[in-house]
Design a protein around this nucleic acid. Structure first.
Lengths: 392, 392
DNA sequence: CAACTTTGTCAAGTCTCTTGCCAAAGGTCC
DNA sequence: GGACCTTTGGCAAGAGACTTGACAAAGTTG
């Protein structure tokens, strides 16, 4: 699975050259519109003639549009263009633990409409029905051409084939979600892990300039990371890269739902914190209660939560030390613990790795956004279909 | 440094198409010669006509050669070809801690001649002279056209500019080694970290089929890893990826030469083991003595060494858990501890990570080869100059 | 208003892959 | 041994995509 013995990379053709340059133009416009044909020529290194041709087909495809003349700089005033925001619409889905969310997203990553359907105990096959409902509803009242469907789901997901290899929360194993939906709806479908989707969302829509390397750690009921390296989503040999909620850490010995003890998840996840804090303060039974108690400054709760932050900090330090990545973002419900929590993570991350490496590393909260997974799934679809999104 | 704000990827041109396909052909021949033009056409998907043209220029360049007719399969017998082993020679250098090694390597990774020059206390500028001597001597009696010079050195190295950012052992900082040698010798020069070079050597010359992801951990005086992800060498934002000798691990509290305490290197490196074992058994003063005592079964020494193996195992488990990489190789002097040591690493690596991820992971010794760094540096040069080596 | 700049486009040229065809060289079958 | 088929390698013409050179349109500047 990991090796590619007989498969040679594809040959290069004229068609590919064309596609590549077309994506180059589209991408430039996506990142810094409005631009003129002449601007694009300077930016890409292509001739004005070539750009003219490429722009022509992009306009015919409805992907970009002219938006009027710009200021002259001593000659003919340029015709400015931008990505047509609604040249395509995308459907992004977030198969969460408690509910399925879906949204129609445009090419600028703006959410045009969204729906949330609670799972209500459904599991296995029954959840698929819910999924179909969601997509049907979103497709119903949308007119722009549909680029495809992007899906973020918890678990181990093979993005190359669109297969959910294994998902505890959904109780799915080896579900070929991508092909299934592709057949049903006749549009391209991409599937990714939810943490990976979060990373893609941050990279595509919120980080300028785009970092080459970015780790987004999602701390919710579980703990997982989306890892972008050399400008590409990194999934590992078994598509499980970043699923580090189940690596052992020193000291901890609580049993984990994965069957082992001392997993990172058993001390730092939201689920774990509710349990631990609940044992100390019986009034705490859910996330809301936990956050409220933390904010109110209940000493035992603060201690428990900040201890967890330190554990996570050490793990983050490891990541930084091993991968030397300068951009680490934390997303998920933990953001509610605010800067006290973040400060603790930062301090312990920095103290557990060489100063030289830690110095330039930014550890921050990601954009707090309920729809981050939906956006990320859309971002991946945009990347795969239009060449937008990731760094080349 | 990590971000690329204004820099767009290069446009695609005809020239690039040609180069790409030429490398495709060369690569196919490198991996599984001998092949005929028709074989190559089938393998690459190019037409026989195109392949004929590409092969023509490659032969003119002296990079490949015809090696006679092959068996007919019902028609005209094919003309078989292979990479001309000595179509180019490369100079590979290993700037080690105690000595500088250099070798002339051919396109098959065979070492044609090698030289070892002890450092003898030299440091800084003085080592540069040694470097020049080494290259001069290797160039002297070699006739094949020189493809370039590949260098592996300890420390933090910016491969993109050929700069040694920081090297404790060499006492170098911000040395623009690549440009320096390029100017002096008029050939391309690549520089990489020694662990990274080791990883490239394993990938290019010893692993078939080539894995997409590979981590090679070099345990010698220090501890460092070369990380290959998605078929590319991964260096991180600050070129320090894999330098995980200085991440903290639970339990340990010995002071490290980096100024902090509890670094992985303080318990698992060869240097540390000699020190620790020497304290327990005064007769042990160097690597040789340590290995001998371990092999002889001296109980205290075995305990010390195997404890270290466990520490390393946990660290490896982390790597596997976070990156989900299936191929992990261990290289360096530690290989002398043999399977007992390796078994310990394996066991602890597997126990500290999800079974699902650990199950398919291979943890093995790399090819024990004194010249692994020299070969790896050569491999990187071949990759950059000829498109051989890495996975595309 | 004349001269210069900048923009966008057209026609011809160049590069590289492909298609169609053919000769050379070998096997298979009678 | 000969007719026929298969495989290989290569030539000539064609097609796709970028570039070059030229030019008209539209601005600015003095």
């Amino acid at each position: 699975m990991s090796a590619s013995p007989t498969v040679l990379p594809e040959k290069a053709t004229h068609q590919q050259t064309r596609t590549f340059n077309q994506q180059l133009v589209l991408r430039a416009l996506h990142d810094r519109s409005p631009l003129s044909r002449a601007d694009l020529a300077r930016l890409t290194g292509l001739t004005r003639t070539s750009v003219g041709g490429l722009v022509g087909t992009l306009i015919d495809d409805g992907l970009i549009e002219e938006v009027g003349r710009g200021q002259s700089s001593g000659g003919k005033s340029p015709i400015l263009m931008r990505v047509a925001p609604d040249g395509r619409h995308l459907i992004g889905l977030d198969l969460g633990e408690a509910q399925f969310s879906g949204a129609v997203v445009n090419l600028r990553g703006e959410i045009l409409s969204s729906i949330h359907l609670p799972l209500e105990g459904r599991s296995g096959e029954a959840t698929l029905e819910l999924l179909f409902q969601l997509v049907d509803a979103l497709r119903a009242d949308d007119l722009s051409p549909l680029l495809g469907i992007g899906i973020g789901a918890p678990g181990i997901i093979d993005t190359s084939t669109g297969t959910v290899r294994w998902s505890v929360n959904l109780n799915w194993a080896e579900v070929r979600l991508g092909p299934l939906l592709e057949q049903r709806y006749g549009v391209p479908v991409v599937v990714a892990n939810d943490s990976q989707a979060a990373a893609l969302a941050e990279l595509t829509f919120f980080r300028r300039p785009r970092p080459n390397n970015l780790i987004v750690i999602k701390v919710g009921r579980g703990v997982g990371a989306g890892i972008i390296l050399n400008g590409q989503l990194f999934q590992g040999d078994g598509y499980g890269a970043g699923e580090f909620g189940h690596v052992s850490i020193g000291g901890a010995d609580a049993p984990c739902r994965c069957g082992r003890v001392g997993c990172l998840e058993t001390t730092t996840s939201m689920r774990a914190l509710v349990t631990i804090a609940g044992a100390a303060e019986p009034s705490i039974t859910d996330e809301k209660g936990l956050v409220a108690a933390f904010r109110a400054g209940v000493p035992t709760v603060r201690r428990i939560v900040l201890d967890a932050a330190r554990e996570l900090g050490v793990a983050v330090g490891w990541l930084i030390g091993v991968l030397n990545v300068r951009h680490v973002l934390l997303v998920g419900p933990v953001a509610q613990f605010g800067d006290d929590w973040l400060g603790e993570v930062r301090q312990y991350a920095r103290s557990s790795v060489l100063m030289l490496l830690a110095r330039d590393t930014q550890i921050e909260f990601g954009h707090v956004h309920d729809d981050v997974v939906v956006l990320g799934a859309s971002a991946l679809l945009m990347e795969q279909q239009l060449g937008l999104g990731l760094v080349r």
